[in-house]
Computed example of a mutant assay.
Amino acid sequence: MATQTPAVRRSRIGSAVASGRDLMRAFFARGSRRRRQEDVLLELLGQLRLMTEEIHRANLIQQYRLTLEQMDRAIDDPSLADAASTLTGLSEVKRRQMIFANREYGILLMAHQVGICDWEELLGHLRVLCRNQLFAEYWDRTDEHRRSLPPDSLEARVGAVVDVMIEELADGPEEWWIVGPSAAGPDS
């Protein structure tokens, strides 16, 4: 067996240390690379979720735009108003007013659904709308329509709030700005 000089031994030890250090760097680099990949993947999933929500809101808005166009046509043309309304025994003028009241209510719901106004703002707008006698009549005439809504739907929850507002306004309209529930939120 050949004897190694101290310089050769240091060279081999140095090479082994360098190789070990390189292996450790590669190992930790893979770990940090994997963490970066996971972070990028999580960020992409978050962006995908936001895009999906935005597409849903855009579809809601487009569907409601079509509904508003139909309502506008029904308001302009009495024969279309008859076809678009399920309310009976109304004059031509009254039918148009009911369609318009429905349109105004729908606009407020849509504004809340797409995030233009929060729950508290929605309640404020509804308080003002409920003061209108034509809206109160529309609300009374469409009571049966709301009974068919799933109880946990936004429209059913908002409908229950409007029911309370109209009832409280009938009892004491002088303090209209405080009728209805507090701004606790639609899930309360």
Rank of each mutant, 00 (worst) to 15 (best):
Gln62Ser: 05
Glu155Ser: 14
Asp22Ser: 10
Ser32His: 04
Arg34Gly: 13
Thr52Arg: 09
His56Ile: 03
Leu23Ala: 05
Leu50Thr: 15
Glu92Gly: 11
Phe135Val: 00
Met110Gly: 09
Arg25Ser: 04
Leu48Gly: 05
Ser19Met: 10
Asn59Leu: 07
Ser85Gln: 02
Gln37Trp: 01
Arg146Gly: 07
Glu137Thr: 00
Val17Asn: 14
Asp82Ile: 15
Asp118Val: 04
Arg127Met: 02
Leu109Gln: 03
Pro150Cys: 09
Arg49Phe: 10
Arg10Gln: 08
Arg35Thr: 12
Arg33Trp: 11
Asn59Gly: 06
Arg35Trp: 00
Ala81Phe: 03
Arg34Pro: 10
Glu92Trp: 05
Leu66Met: 06
Arg131Asn: 05
Leu108Phe: 06
Leu108Ser: 06
Phe28Cys: 12
Ser153Val: 09
Ser19Tyr: 08
Met24Thr: 00
Gly31Ile: 00
His112Thr: 02
Trp119Ile: 02
Arg96Gln: 07
Phe135Pro: 05
Arg12His: 03
Asp76Val: 04
Asp140Gly: 13
Gln70Glu: 08
Ile99Arg: 04
Pro150Trp: 14
Gln62Ile: 15
Tyr138Gly: 06
Ser15Met: 09
Leu41Asp: 02
Arg95Ser: 03
Ala84Gln: 10
Met71Val: 01
Glu120Tyr: 06
Gly31His: 12
Ile75Val: 13
Pro151Tyr: 13
Asn102Thr: 05
Gln47Pro: 08
Leu122Phe: 06
Leu123Trp: 13
Ile61Thr: 10
Val93Met: 04
Thr52Asp: 06
Ala111Gln: 13
Gln37Asp: 04
Ile75His: 06
Glu144Gly: 07
His112Phe: 14
Ala84Cys: 10
Gly14Phe: 03
Arg12Tyr: 12
Leu87Asp: 00
Leu42Glu: 01
